[in-house]
Amino acid sequence: MMRGLVGLILGMGMIFASSPAWAQRYDPNYPVCMEIYGSDGSVVDCFFTSMAQCKEGATGMAGICFNNPYYVAPPAEAAPAEQTAPAASATPARSPRR
């Protein structure tokens, strides 16, 4: 009885471990997504750069625009370094002649 239970638990663990992972539905490169509703379910498309662009694309469709919860904003560009005048070149000291 105990072996059967252990075998069942290990078997279920292997089944769940080998299940294919679902693909991420949200592209983290774009801040706005649209969920389009159809007769066979809904589809999420994340390729909009603004809410206005998404709403234009949704015209005439049963869908909704929303902020992408997985959006990763690009890092801010560093401010350019302040330019300074080059330092005066030092002339090598000459040793006194003997």
Rank of each mutant, 00 (worst) to 15 (best):
R3F: 09
L5S: 09
G7M: 04
G7H: 14
G7A: 09
L8K: 03
L8T: 03
L8F: 03
L10N: 03
L10I: 10
G11K: 03
M12W: 12
M12E: 15
M12G: 10
G13R: 00
I15S: 09
I15M: 10
I15T: 00
I15C: 04
F16H: 07
F16Q: 15
F16W: 13
F16I: 10
S18W: 03
A21M: 04
A21Q: 11
W22E: 14
A23M: 10
Y26S: 07
D27P: 02
D27I: 01
P28Q: 00
P28L: 00
P28G: 01
N29K: 03
C33V: 03
E35G: 05
Y37C: 09
G38C: 04
S39H: 12
D40W: 15
D40L: 12
G41R: 08
S42F: 06
V44Y: 01
V44T: 08
D45V: 12
D45T: 12
D45N: 14
D45K: 11
F47M: 02
F48Y: 09
T49W: 11
S50E: 02
S50N: 01
M51I: 12
A52H: 15
A52L: 12
Q53F: 04
C54G: 02
K55L: 12
G57F: 15
G57S: 11
A58Y: 05
T59R: 14
T59S: 13
M61V: 03
M61K: 10
M61T: 10
M61D: 06
A62C: 05
A62I: 08
A62E: 11
A62Y: 04
G63I: 01
C65I: 06
C65W: 02
C65T: 02
F66A: 00
N67F: 13
P69W: 04
Y70Q: 12
Y71P: 01
V72E: 14
V72L: 07
A73P: 04
P75R: 08
P75C: 00
A76F: 02
A76W: 07
A76E: 13
E77D: 10
A78Y: 13
A81N: 08
A81E: 10
E82Q: 11
T84V: 12
A85P: 02
A85E: 13
P86K: 00
P86A: 01
S89W: 15
S89Q: 09
T91S: 08
A93E: 04
S95E: 15
S95D: 14
P96A: 14
